[in-house]
């Protein structure tokens, strides 16, 4: 009990800094998710009807997820230096897979009869995609975006190891001086605010998902 009060005091005293790192953390996640979503939707559209490319790309995007995050972060240091860039590049690669897979699944789930009638009415392939196939796949794509965002919020805490910003600094900072005053409070602050950020982003995306889904598709 005393520990908890102690922790709240710590958070209260450092709130400004914790908030700043939370915002940095959120910024990294949102930029990564935006870029990954755009790439994945484009890539998903390209591969969905091409069986070979589809199998290869989906497999690759899955394999990326199995690369240990610390290694992946470090791998990019020679390429883009230290700081946020290598972290964001690694997070971007992780975030691709859920959105990509859901884009393909979402496009698969569009009724062939609907596409047939769109084509039969004289819609070009681009019109079919933009007016019919993507709007119908959208709820599934958004579900992928939400998974990616939760995942990225968690992994982004490692960005500190390659010199990046974010709540990872509290976890890392606490761990390196473990046993010293406030070290445990620092770790817990990093963890709790990371989790809170994940929840807030997920709720925000859920609301966005609801309002960006065409009314005829809402349950």
């Amino acid at each position: 009990m005393e520990n908890i009060t102690n922790w709240f005091t710590y958070v209260n005293d450092n709130f400004e800094y914790i908030l700043e790192e939370t915002i940095n953390h959120a910024r990294i996640v949102l930029i990564v998710i935006a870029l990954a979503t755009v790439t994945s939707v484009l890539l998903g559209v390209l591969i969905q009807r091409r069986p070979v490319a589809r199998a290869v790309v989906l497999a690759l995007s899955g394999i990326v997820l199995t690369i240990p995050s610390l290694a992946l972060f470090a791998l990019f240091i020679p390429v883009v230096g230290i700081g946020n860039p290598p972290a964001m590049l690694a997070l971007y690669l992780y975030a691709l897979m859920p959105v990509l897979r859901n884009t393909v699944t979402g496009l698969d789930s569009v009724s062939p009869a609907v596409v047939e009638s769109a084509k039969g009415m004289g819609m070009s392939s681009t019109q079919q995609l933009l007016r019919v196939r993507l709007p119908l796949a959208w709820p599934v794509i958004m579900a992928g975006v939400r998974i990616s965002s939760l995942m990225t919020v968690g992994i982004a805490a490692i960005a500190i190891l390659v010199g990046g910003d974010g709540l990872g600094s509290y976890i890392q900072g606490g761990l390196t001086r473990f046993g010293l005053p406030n070290s445990e409070n620092s770790v817990w602050a990093g963890v709790v605010f990371t989790v809170l950020l994940g929840l807030v982003l997920d709720i925000a995306f859920a609301i966005f998902q609801r309002f960006s889904t065409p009314r005829g598709l809402r349950a």
């Binding site: 009724s111 062939p112 047939e116 039969g120 009415m121 004289g122 070009s124 119908l136 598709l217």
Partner: peptide, 19 residues
């Protein structure tokens, strides 16, 4: 595509746009 806009097309599965 221009040809198809001149021709009405009805299929068994209907294929209305649900959205």
């Amino acid at each position: 595509d221009k040809l198809r806009r001149r021709i009405g097309y009805v299929i068994q599965q209907i294929g209305l746009f649900p959205h």
